[in-house]
Simulated scan of single mutants.
Amino acid sequence: MASPSRSSSPPGRAQLRKVVVYSLLSLDGVAEEPGDWMFDVDAEVFAFLGRVIETQDDVLLGRGTYDYWVDYWPTSEVQPFADFINSTPKHVFSSHPLWGTWQNEQLVTAPVEDHVQALQAGLGGDIGVHGSITLVQALLAADLVDELHLVVAPTITGRGARLFPSGINGPLRLACTGQSLTPSGTLLLSYARSAEGGQHVPSRL
């Protein structure tokens, strides 16, 4: 699969594969256990997910997400994600051996930044990140995220791990590339690195 155009990428990154994060969020920014607070999933949500994953041919997973998913997705019929996640190479970051037998899984013990930069420099389409809250935060801290696609449910959870916790490196300048509202009130938001390069910009406010 040819790498999508990155004409809006900052200088020095134009030929690199994109790292693309997809995450389900509550209104108060919680990404943990979406099954507990995401009550309505419209057809538009599945279509949005399908558009995001159609350009991805590698997936990065944290160990917690791997352990949570390895017994579910291999036998799931929930599309379009089941076929995608089962057939796509999965790079699982962990210091311990993988205990599952998931198709196309690969243990990664190298530092996150080193492994991801090596993938970016190779051939292929986008590199997806799904679930994996801690891994997403590490990629954001290393300034390696090119796109964020967020499904924001109309629910306030009041507790749980947030995707963007207090103290995360920032501010990070992004450009909104898409937004829509589903019939159930779920927001579908897409962001990309800004034309200024997505660098951290000192706040003047």
Rank of each mutant, 00 (worst) to 15 (best):
V129Q: 04
S8E: 06
P74Q: 07
V52A: 11
A14W: 08
E32W: 11
T186P: 01
E44A: 07
D114N: 05
S194I: 00
I133W: 05
S3P: 06
L148D: 00
H115P: 09
T55F: 09
L24M: 12
G197E: 06
S166H: 08
T186F: 06
W102E: 04
V20R: 03
Q120R: 13
Q199V: 13
P80S: 00
L181F: 03
G131C: 04
A82S: 14
R173M: 12
R17M: 08
Q106T: 11
F81E: 04
Q137N: 10
Y68I: 11
L107Y: 01
A192Q: 08
H149C: 02
V19Y: 14
L150H: 04
A192E: 13
I168F: 13
G178S: 11
G185W: 10
S76C: 03
P89K: 03
G178A: 10
S94I: 08
W73N: 04
T134C: 03
G124C: 08
V45C: 03
E105N: 08
G158L: 00
G122Y: 11
E44W: 06
Q179D: 02
V30N: 00
P171A: 09
D28T: 07
G158A: 01
F81D: 00
G131E: 02
V21L: 15
I168L: 13
S194T: 01
E147I: 13
L107S: 02
T177C: 06
S184Q: 04
L188T: 06
G50A: 14
V108P: 02
D126E: 09
S87Q: 10
S7P: 00
Q179Y: 15
T101W: 10
V52P: 06
S95T: 12
T155H: 12
L123E: 15
T55R: 02
V78S: 04
V45W: 09
S184P: 00
L174P: 01
L163N: 05
A195H: 07
G35Q: 14
S23A: 15
S184Y: 07
L189I: 01
G125T: 05
L187Y: 07
P111W: 09
Q179S: 09
P202R: 13
V136M: 10
H149Y: 10
A121F: 13
P97K: 02
D146K: 06
V152Q: 01
Q56V: 07
R17D: 07
P10M: 14
V201G: 00
D42A: 06
G131K: 02
G62D: 09
G35L: 11
D36G: 04
G158R: 01
A141M: 02
T65G: 03
N86W: 08
A110C: 00
P74S: 09
G35M: 12
R173Q: 10
T186G: 00
G100K: 06
V112I: 15
P154Y: 08
V151S: 02
T109C: 06
W99F: 03
K18Q: 14
A138R: 10
L25C: 07
A153N: 01
G198P: 08
S166E: 14
L139T: 07
L16G: 05
R6Q: 14
D71Y: 02
L98T: 09
G198S: 09
H91Q: 05
F46G: 00
P11N: 15
V52C: 04
H149G: 03
L187P: 01
S132F: 12
G50K: 15
Y191R: 02
V52T: 08
F46D: 01
L163H: 11
A82Y: 13
